[in-house]
Design a protein around this nucleic acid. Sequence first.
DNA 1: CGATCCGTTGAATTACGTCAATAGACGTGG
DNA 2: CCACGTCTATTGACGTAATTCAACGGATCG
Lengths: 246, 246
Amino acid sequence: MTAHDPVIACGNCPIRHNAICAECESDELSMLERAKSYKTVPVGTPLARAGEPLSHFSSLVKGCAAMSRTLEDGRRQTVGLLLPSDFIGRPGRATSPFDVTALSEVTLCRFERTAFERIVRDTPHVASRLLTMTLDELDAARDWAVVLGRMTAREKLAAFLLNLAQRQRSVRGMARPSGKILVALPMSREQMGDHLGLTIETISRQITALRKDGLIEVPSRQDIRILDYDALAFEAGDDGDGAPIA
Amino acid sequence: MTAHDPVIACGNCPIRHNAICAECESDELSMLERAKSYKTVPVGTPLARAGEPLSHFSSLVKGCAAMSRTLEDGRRQTVGLLLPSDFIGRPGRATSPFDVTALSEVTLCRFERTAFERIVRDTPHVASRLLTMTLDELDAARDWAVVLGRMTAREKLAAFLLNLAQRQRSVRGMARPSGKILVALPMSREQMGDHLGLTIETISRQITALRKDGLIEVPSRQDIRILDYDALAFEAGDDGDGAPIA
DNA sequence: CGATCCGTTGAATTACGTCAATAGACGTGG
DNA sequence: CCACGTCTATTGACGTAATTCAACGGATCG
């Protein structure tokens, strides 16, 4: 832990109403306050390693991380993109089933493993919130399976950009996006490829294709501007009938 | 509900120790006993439809079902294979995010929606078991994302057969399989394709290829005999170091 | 100013999909 | 029991989307 971590009080924590603590009353919050500790780590830091013990559970307060698995021959698949308020760790198991890596500088709100499992047991508002978040993640993982299994490269990229746009908005508490939106890409082309089950070259080509088709602008390497949200949603196979993309 | 459903007492229920009720004490069990009802439906019956209200939550007692989503143009992706003890329904939402279809004749142990949500709230042993099962399903969904995103057709089929072998054994309470195992395919080639993100023709060709390579036998359309479990695991990219296939 | 890293683009290859014909299973009725 | 129709699986020929291999270009940093 770095000495200069800002001490955040739960009361004015940016993820107070979305994280594991969202349902807590003030007395439960002060109990969490006593158990928590902050840690800020630089980009690239491994936050968990597949198969290895995990000493702490955390909420991601600030930054971005990726959950992934790497096969023996080097093929890698990202199975989840973690944004502020997302939970890191696998309650009920001592080891993490996946690697988790910081894609940017990341600030964590951490709980020691056994302390946290006691909290889950004794605090119904935490247990209930954990169940809700896990069910939502399960839906998201299954939605993503549809993207990975059945979509073309172009559709995958469109779905990814839309997903990212929605999540970045909802972190900032904004409504469903429409029209022009600037999306901050928190990762390299290679990591996008790992997330979408594509190669870096295919990612690059599809970005170029969407740009030439007037659907997006690429102001910089780490930004993409969606020029027409609904048109991009159409590219992702969403005909506007409400079926989720991811 | 059909009139001739066998009345199963929780005490000698085949999924007593694996389903949502696994952690319950006898008094909690008798409470569930009062709330439950059985239903047996023929193969092909839709048990839930994406986006539509779901009146009951169920445990799958007997048979096999698939959770899937179909895109507007007909592409379909199965996101979960449901075997005995698996849970059907989405607590916390009134509607199902996916279609669920019976792949065989299916017997369900059902609970009316609002009654079940009250049980979850009031029965920590049920809530806790539901969380455990949801976390396991989340791991499985993410494992499957690796298969869908990064594996070849041959690896996908091998991973599927291994997964099915393991689950069919564990339903019957057997140890990790090895050597020769007869796997009952609960689905058509088309449904296998939907599960693996492949076409029916590719499924057929890969079955032939694995057969010609001496890894499997195909005694009938709905059975495959794994001739060498470890060799097949190698085909699925598992070099034996313990990394899970699915 | 050169070295390195990351992204883009092009050309060739390949795995899987598509289209089409055939072959087995299975059920039904004669 | 056999003839027939239907449905599913297999196999072949061909097309194509994405990968692979390779060259190049533009940032960033010493």
